[in-house]
Amino acid sequence: MTFSGAFTALVTPFKDGKIDEERFREHIEWQITEGIHGLVPCGTTGESATLTHDEHKEAIRICVEQANKRVPVLAGAGSNNTNEAIHLTQFAKDAGADGVLLISPYYNKPTQEGIYQHFKHIADTINIPMVLYNVPSRTGSNLLPSTVARLHKDIPQIVGIKEATGNLVQVSDLIEQCGDSFTILSGDDFTLLPLLSLGGSGVISVVSNLLPNKMANLCNAWNNGDIATAQKLHFELQPLNRAMFMESNPIPVKTALALQNKMDTDFRLPMVPLAENNLAKLKSVMADAGLL
């Protein structure tokens, strides 16, 4: 299994303190209809940090069922507790996910050897395609290219990485050290085009919650050799890319979806509603993008 193109890091809609299954299914269906290449439930954008284990499993189950093998599902299953990551990975496999997204352990800040052993232990326990997730701004440690290359060499089911450092030198080093058989996905919408130009494979996107067709078409254009169209779409998306990170993700994107009446602005603490001054800015950017 390979993962390439535009994957949406799905927002998790809530209602009355629970997952809003109806809205979640509608959102997934619309994503597929709009041409998205894949789906990622239970990532950062899906507020995985405040989902209970039962809710985490429910979100994966709903996504796998609704996708029904029309597009691949890469289920968020990571944790800073190795045994917990194994538990969630096993559930994702049993539920029928096509692969799992595994964040590098956060808060406890393991060494590179500790990170290696964390992923190795998961892979030794469960056989499913695995995409690593490197986001130092949230984990407090950087998953270095040399460690990633070692993992890919030793563990065939580690097939790729979501790289969210925004550091194109690190992306270049990853591609150089891991080779063509390794999938590099951007974890920052605004670096998708430059990452593709280095040899990357696509993006796990926040903005595609709002514009799945445009994000997918950017990848399609690049893969078809239509660089001019890819560049055009890149610059069209940039204002929205910036707006989605004016406050902590997923506050802006869930607010944007609520402004389109696709779900409620229901956050779980410590996430709070978008500040009023930023709400006005978001509405302006959305209007300019034809989303309001």
Rank of each mutant, 00 (worst) to 15 (best):
M1S: 04
S4G: 13
G17W: 15
D20S: 13
R23T: 07
H27R: 11
W30A: 13
I32F: 07
T33P: 02
E34V: 03
G38C: 10
G43E: 05
T45Y: 08
L51K: 01
E55N: 09
E55F: 12
H56M: 13
C63P: 00
P72S: 03
A75K: 00
G76W: 03
A77N: 04
A77W: 02
N80R: 14
H87M: 12
L88E: 03
K93N: 04
G96Y: 09
I103V: 14
K109G: 00
I122V: 10
T125S: 14
T125V: 11
I128L: 06
Y133P: 07
V135E: 08
V148R: 07
R150G: 05
H152Y: 07
D154G: 12
I155P: 06
N167E: 15
Q170K: 11
D173P: 02
Q177K: 13
G179Q: 08
S186W: 07
D189M: 03
T191V: 10
S208D: 09
M215G: 01
W222E: 06
N224T: 15
I227D: 13
T229I: 01
Q231L: 12
K232F: 10
E236D: 10
L237K: 07
Q238A: 07
M244V: 08
M246F: 11
S248G: 04
K254M: 08
D266G: 00
R268P: 00
M271Q: 08
V272M: 11
L274P: 00
E276M: 06
N277H: 10
L279E: 15
A280R: 10
S284V: 05
